[in-house]
Design a protein around this nucleic acid. Structure first.
Lengths: 238, 238
DNA sequence: CGCAATCTTGAATCATTTCAACATAAGTGG
DNA sequence: CCACTTATGTTGAAATGATTCAAGATTGCG
C-alpha cells in the first residue's frame, strides 16, 4: 500500500522490517479524492499527515487569484509531512488527478520521534529533500529560460518516477494538462504549447496524451542543465 | 552567544532550561569569516551544521556562471541544519558580510534526536520553516512583479530581524548591495536601482546606506501582498 | 586624495505575456 | 455511434516588461 514510499526510502537508507512495519501501521486510513478536490486548505488546523498512494497532488499558493504551484507530488510522496511540526500549512493542496491518499496521525509520528530515532531521521530527511526540490525550483525560476524550465521539470519527474518504479526507459505517464505544468514554471499555457513543440522539434522530449516520452535523455539533461544531485538519489552515508 | 537562535525558538515554543543548556553546549566552536568567503561548498561531505551568530549569509546555486540566492540568513538562523540529514548540500553558502559562525557537530544533533524528542521536533520545525520561506520565494518569483518582490523581501526580513530583536519600528540595518538583493529576486542591479527609487517615491520603503527604512508599513505590506503566516511567528499549538 | 566598487539614468534589444481566434480532443447523453 | 458540449491545445499579432549596453555619478575605502 505504501510500497512506493518504502521504495523511496529503501533507495536512500536501510530500513529494518520492524521500521517498515511501523510505517505501514502508521497509515490509519485510506481515502479516495476526485480530480480537482482540495485536500488541505492553508491555515487549517491539522492533526495528521498525508501520504500519496496514487495520483498527482499539487501544493500551491495564491497571490490575488493567480496560483503558483510550489511542488508536485507523485505516488510515494508525503504531501505534508511538514504539517507535523508546522500544525497548519502556508499553502493549499489540490488533487490534480483522481488520488488515493493515506492518513498518518501526528500522534503516530510523535511516537516515531520518541521511540524510533532512526526512522525519525529518515522522515526528517524526507522534508529536507522536499526543501531541496524547492531550492531547485527557485533556481529554475531565477536562472533558466522558459524552455529550460520545462525540460528541467521533465528530467526531475523522470528521476522521481523512476525511483518508485513508475517510469520506463522511454518515459512516464504524467496525467497533467499543459496549463498545470505551466503553473509550476511561471509559464502561460500559450507558452507551454509553443515550448513543447520546439522541444519536440529538437528531438529532446515529447509530452502528448498525458505521457512524457524522452527522445534523447543525455541531450535533454544537458539542455536543461539538469544535475540530479539535489534529488539525493544515492544511499546516504552512515 | 546563540541568544538570537534561542529568541527565535522561544517565540514559537517553550524551551526548558535544560534544553537551552543542551543547545548552548552543542556549539563546539566559533569562527569568524570574511565577507566574500565561501562557508560551505556544494557536494562537500559535512559532519557539522552551522549557526549564524552575526552577519549575513547567502545560500545560492549556480547555473552556468550566474547565481541564484535561494535563502538569506541572519543572526540566529541555522544555515545548514538540513546538512544533518542530507550529509552534503545541493548549494553553496557564502558570507555576504563579515560573519561569526558556530559549529554544531552532527554527533551532537544525533544525541538530541536520541535523547531529546521535544528539542528534535523544534529543530525539525526550523528546517520546515526554512522550506516555508523557500515556497514563498517560489511564489514571489512566479506571481509577483519585480517591485512587489523587492517590497515583499523587505517585509519578510523586517519580521525576521524583529523576532530576534534586531529591528526597530522604523526599519533595520541590512548590510547588502543592491546587486545581492537582486540575486535573490531575479532582478538585474539596474532594475534594483530603478525599483528602489519608485518604492522611495511612493513613500513605502527606503534602502540607503545599507539600511532599510520602512516609511509606511501597512501600505508596504499591502503593496507587496505580504502575509506573514508563512513565517510561523506565533506560538505553536501544543 | 585617488581608486575601486556601487549606484543611477537613458536608450536599444530581447523575451515573455496577453489577447483573440481557431482547432482538436475528450466526455456526455441521445 | 453520432452530435453536442466542454476542456485543452495551437497559432498570429500586439503589448508589456525585463535585460543588456553604455556612460556618468556617487560612495566607500585605503
Amino acid at each position: 500500500m505504501i510500497e512506493h514510499l518504502l521504495r523511496r526510502l529503501r533507495a536512500r537508507d536501510c530500513l529494518s522490517a520492524h521500521e517498515e512495519d511501523i510505517l505501514r501501521r502508521s497509515v490509519r486510513e485510506v481515502k479516495g479524492r476526485e480530480a480537482g478536490a482540495t485536500i488541505i486548505h492553508a491555515a487549517d488546523d491539522l492533526d495528521c499527515s498525508t501520504v500519496l498512494l496514487d495520483g498527482i497532488l499539487a501544493r500551491y499558493k495564491l497571490v490575488g487569484k493567480r496560483r503558483q504551484i510550489t511542488q508536485l507530488h507523485i505516488s510515494g510522496d508525503f504531501a505534508d509531512l511538514h504539517s507535523f511540526s508546522l500544525k497548519r500549512l502556508d499553502h493549499n493542496i489540490l488533487a490534480l488527478t483522481p488520488c488515493r491518499i493515506g492518513l498518518v496521525p501526528h500522534e503516530a509520528l510523535e511516537e516515531i520521534v520518541r521511540e524510533e530515532p532512526h526512522l525519525a531521521e529518515l522522515l526528517w530527511f524526507l522534508t529536507n529533500l522536499d526543501a531541496a526540490i524547492h531550492r531547485e525550483w527557485i533556481t529554475s525560476l531565477g536562472l533558466r529560460t522558459s524552455s529550460e524550465r520545462v525540460a528541467h521539470l521533465f528530467c526531475e519527474l523522470f528521476r522521481r518516477f523512476e525511483i518508485v518504479g513508475l517510469a520506463d526507459p522511454q518515459g512516464y505517464s504524467l496525467n497533467l494538462t499543459q496549463a498545470a505544468v505551466g503553473d509550476c514554471l511561471k509559464l502561460h499555457h500559450v507558452d507551454m504549447s509553443r515550448i513543447l513543440s520546439t522541444l519536440r522539434d529538437k528531438g529532446l522530449v515529447d509530452f502528448k496524451r498525458r505521457r512524457v516520452t524522452i527522445r534523447d535523455r543525455k541531450a535533454l539533461e544537458a539542455f536543461a542543465k539538469f544535475d540530479p544531485a539535489y534529488l539525493y538519489l544515492d544511499r546516504r552515508p552512515a
